[in-house]
Nucleic acid binder design. Structure first.
Lengths: 129, 129, 129, 129
DNA sequence: GTGGTCTAGACCACA
DNA sequence: GTGGTCTAGACCACA
């Protein structure tokens, strides 16, 4: 479950992204406890100090709260989490459009490709009517 | 103009991706000459042997043709290039859908976000009517 | 057990020929393990990278299969091996005819020489009835 | 027209083979003048001394005769040349049988392959009746 | 131990 | 100058 680190961005930023994804997807829910810094460091094969830096940055933005002796907890604010989720979605969509355009596709074509891919997935859908 | 290498995939594969993007986008057009192995190596700050490996793999797949003493050239086949472009688009769309779903968005929401983002871009469009 | 390299063809191609002969003759049988790259390099007194190149070219042609950490194995396909054997035989016969003709021999004479040589061998045969 | 030298045999021996082939094939006919040592050295890209050694060895076997100031000449004896031709043919046939057997073919199969190949060649024959 | 990747650098063949 | 081959040797991933 290691991060595929790239060499152009600080690792602690990549760790933040990694955690934000889990917040946005609901894997880490509001108010729940994050893995300890040491545990996270072990899982990601990085130095605990690097994890601490990531946790601290997130605390500054009120995304998590650390309670000495207890651990680090996801914010109780559902709004805050929803905010992150929307931000990440925006970024995702922007990147997608940018890359699709770089490949020379028009808006129409992009929408068409997306619709087709959805249909494909529906065919092989495993989760419901 | 360096590649932002990640550490989980061979550099020569990342170089191939880098070049395929340029093929698909038309930056490297059918029949045109690629930068020489040495030049590409300098630009990307990698060893010429690593570039050669990338070029050779692409040659095996008939994407480029090397002519000793002359250089390495993009295939003349527009079809081959279109094929790459479509493949890359498919992969792009699949990844996008996968990540959007990981963030908990439904098909409807994804399409809506996309449509909104397009509108935004149209407002700031620099090449439109 | 060194290869008698000639200077006009890449060593890795000569290594491939060397191995193909052993495949065709059954010395390396279907599914069996080839000597490791390092061992083969030592035996042939070449660099391991050169052996690897030979092995990789053979893998691309589905003649061998490499399993990381385990070694390189001859294809399981008897058909594939038979195919090689036939190809090599064809080439052998063609070269023989070509050289015999270069010496000014006719088809009749060639066949006669062959028949005589077989008789000779039969006389000194060690495994015959 | 360079020789594809291998590294396991003296170059002068390889030059002798090269010349014997031309004798046997009639390209160098009985009594005719061989290229001068200097010319041969230039053609083969070797040192003239190496050519001289080859010529000398052939002279010892009465295959050629050197006449000071005139050059080196092929023996006048047709018998001698025929003898070489037969020797080379024997060696050729023996090598062929040996290699075919190494590929696992029986006498019957070898003769069959040869016959088939002759038929093939007849089809595409350019000098036939 | 096995194969995989990469660097550094030499020398060659072709133009 | 361009690609092709090869050596030497490092370090990694998998078993």
């Amino acid at each position: 479950m290691a991060i595929n680190y790239d060499t152009t961005r600080p690792i602690y930023e990549q760790i933040i992204d990694y955690i934000l994804k889990k917040l946005a997807s609901g894997e880490f829910s509001a108010g729940s406890k994050l893995p300890s810094q040491r545990e996270m460091a072990k899982v990601l094969s990085v130095n605990p100090n690097t994890v601490q830096r990531a946790y601290r940055e997130m605390e500054i933005k009120d995304l998590v709260e650390t309670r000495r002796g207890l651990g680090t907890f996801v914010t109780e604010s559902e709004d805050k989490i929803e905010e992150i989720r929307v931000e990440m979605a925006e970024e995702l969509v922007e990147n997608f459009i940018e890359e699709a355009r770089a490949l020379g596709f028009t808006e129409k074509e992009i929408e068409k490709m997306l619709a087709e891919k959805f249909k494909e997935f529906e065919g092989g859908n495993t989760d419901g009517a």
